[in-house]
């Protein structure tokens, strides 16, 4: 009865029916996601919910918690130290985005060209973003030392006056931005390099035939075509710069005084030095809202760039 041909037809029909009843199929595939969802629920979602709960209480670990509603948020708004931290974070983020993006685009343009040992040099170039941030931060801390540090020696070599680097309130933020730029320029480079590789070649070819110069071609063709990728890099950098903790904490712990105390450092000190759990949780909630906005911006751009 069942010839091979008939079996094949039957199989095809069954397959189509299975594909047609996409509801049941979808349910079956969601089973693959379930274990991960349970873990994510426990380790990620529970903390989110619990944080909101805590932010509505006055809670100092040892003492019992008291419901205070939105007081923690109101107190934050009135806390000059917190407001200063917000401004500082904003300034830090601005420069920790702009500089890596600028250098990253330049680096991507260089690495987009053909040259000997390109893979090797690219490997060397991305080492800073792979290296353990805390370990590298400590090396920078030694390099920043005003009397014995190698950076002031290098400055003196090119005839510049020495700097106090992370040891003075005026120079601590620029110094930390320097470390962040050193560390994260490679990531921008990689993203923009991906954009350059995906760029269609025809516009450049025809522009060259029309006799356009290198600068014109970059400004009128390369830049607009890679702009979506650059924007992705900008959003990623913004999120990462807002999150910056390891380098700042390892090098200055917010000092001197509070001169490098960003929101992250403020949050850490409130929670784990002063044990102001309620207040720290309120900071987390505000912070989370900002990161969420950036994430959606990132997702929107990712779809537009059809990237990765």
């Amino acid at each position: 009865m069942s010839t091979p041909a008939a079996a094949a037809v039957g199989g095809a029909i069954r397959a189509r029916r299975r594909a047609g009843s996409s509801y049941r199929r979808r349910d079956k595939y969601l089973r693959f996601v379930l274990p991960a969802l349970v873990v994510i629920g426990a380790v990620i979602v529970f903390p989110w919910v619990f944080t909101v709960f805590m932010s509505l209480h006055d809670w100092q670990v040892a003492s019992p918690r008291v419901w205070v509603g939105l007081d923690n948020y109101a107190n934050l708004a009135g806390d000059a130290r917190f407001r200063a931290a917000v401004v500082r974070t904003f300034v830090y983020t601005l420069f920790a985005v702009a500089l890596p993006v600028l250098f990253g685009v330049l680096a991507a343009l260089m690495f987009h060209q053909e040259f000997p040992l390109r893979g090797f040099f690219r490997g060397v170039f991305i080492l800073p973003m792979i290296a353990t941030p805390v370990a590298i931060s400590l090396v920078w801390a030694m390099m920043f030392h005003p009397q014995l540090g190698v950076l002031n020696f290098l400055l003196s070599r090119v005839g510049l006056p020495p700097s106090l680097w992370v040891y003075a309130p005026d120079t601590v933020i620029p110094s930390l931005v320097l470390v962040e730029t050193w560390q994260w320029t490679p990531l921008v480079m990689l993203i923009v390099l991906g954009g350059l590789a995906a760029m269609p070649t025809e516009p450049l070819e025809s522009a060259r035939i029309d006799g356009a110069g290198g600068w014109r071609m970059f400004w009128d063709i390369t830049l607009p075509l890679t702009l979506p990728f650059i924007m992705v890099a900008v959003v990623l950098r913004t999120i990462d710069a807002l999150k910056a903790f390891d380098t700042i904490y390892a090098i200055t712990q917010g000092g001197p005084g509070t001169a490098s105390e960003t929101v992250n450092i403020y949050l850490y000190l409130q929670a784990f030095n002063f044990f102001q759990i309620g207040r720290a949780s309120a900071v987390v909630v505000v912070f989370f809202a900002v990161i969420l906005a950036c994430s959606f911006g990132m997702l929107y751009l990712r779809q537009r760039a059809r990237w990765a």
Partner: peptide, 9 residues
């Protein structure tokens, strides 16, 4: 994208 710090408490 959420900062690791925010899970810690």
């Amino acid at each position: 994208m959420t900062p690791g710090l925010s899970y810690l408490i």
